[in-house]
């Protein structure tokens, strides 16, 4: 009897040992926990280990997904492209989103998935304010309202004309700066140029020619510098608008998770 008990204990321990914390199922459960805790670097390492032991499309997808979330787009694409089974549609969507992210959007190839089409349509809308496709057929009604709202808020700020900024400043010192949004600088430029011009005029009037020339040349320098500064300000303003729009566009895409859906086996509780 005791021998049987001992044998049973031994067998159970032996079986449990084989099924320990380094078994494939335990590793998967641990890797999923890391993934859900956004510990992507560690999840990648664990999924890579599992992939070597027991490879399947779900593991490959999770591995590629971890790379994607960790911002390692090239590696993510390599792994997404390896999937050829039931998950291939979702993998293709991720793959096209990565292609969109790592290539210049202008050089983006013809999309094959709905996600790719959405990204291309949105990019064209962002670049030219019009899209070749009928957006209502690609986006859901809610998405469409959100995109419309986003575009309206970002198109409200118009770029400044560099030429106009220069002309304004040559007509009235500082006006070009005010036009470019630098009101304080504009007023300062106006006051300094006016003061120096007045000092020059006053000195010439009182026959202090040297001082007249000195202040006159200083006023000229400030006048020319102010025109140049206005042109630079307008250019900087345009650059900031462009960067803000670009930043807003990619933030919006990120917020929408590039229109990608996460498969049920990845959604964390």
């Amino acid at each position: 009897m005791y021998r049987t008990i001992l044998l049973l204990i031994f067998v159970s321990i032996k079986l449990l040992s084989q099924e320990g914390y380094y078994s494939v199922s335990s590793r998967i459960s641990f890797a999923d926990y890391l993934l859900c805790n956004r510990d992507y670097e560690f999840a990648i390492n664990e999924y890579n280990q599992i992939d070597k032991l027991e490879s399947n499309d779900t593991i490959k997808f999770k591995l590629a997904f971890s790379y994607f979330k960790n911002g390692e787009f090239e590696s993510a694409k390599i792994h997404f492209d390896k999937i050829n089974n039931i998950l291939s549609v979702q993998s293709k969507e991720y793959s096209e989103a990565i292609k969109f992210l790592i290539n210049e959007p202008e050089n983006y190839l013809t999309p094959q998935t709905i996600v790719g089409k959405k990204l291309v349509a949105l990019n064209s809308l962002y670049q030219t304010n019009k899209s070749e496709d009928d957006l209502s057929t690609i986006f859901t009604k809610d998405d469409f309202i959100e995109i419309d709202g986003w575009l309206n808020s970002h198109n409200r700020i118009n770029e400044k004309s560099i030429l106009l900024a220069g002309i304004y400043s040559s007509l009235l010192p500082g006006l070009g700066k005010i036009y470019s949004g630098q009101t304080g600088d504009g007023i300062t430029a106006f006051v300094v140029t006016s003061l120096l011009s007045y000092l020059s005029y006053d000195n010439f009037k009182n026959n202090h020619d040297f001082r007249g020339y000195l202040f006159g040349s200083l006023a000229g320098l400030f006048y020319a510098g102010n025109i140049y500064g206005s042109v630079v300000s307008a250019h900087q303003f345009n650059l900031k608008v462009k960067l803000d729009r670009e930043d807003g566009f990619f933030s919006f895409l990120k917020l929408k998770n590039y229109f990608l859906t996460e498969p049920s086996f990845i959604q964390c509780r």
Partner: peptide
Amino acid sequence: QIKLLFILILLTSVRLNGQLHLHEIL
């Protein structure tokens, strides 16, 4: 009684085994 003892030993061994593995990870 023997059956109860057997279950107790089995449960203890399983628990100890788990702890042993955790210690191995540490």
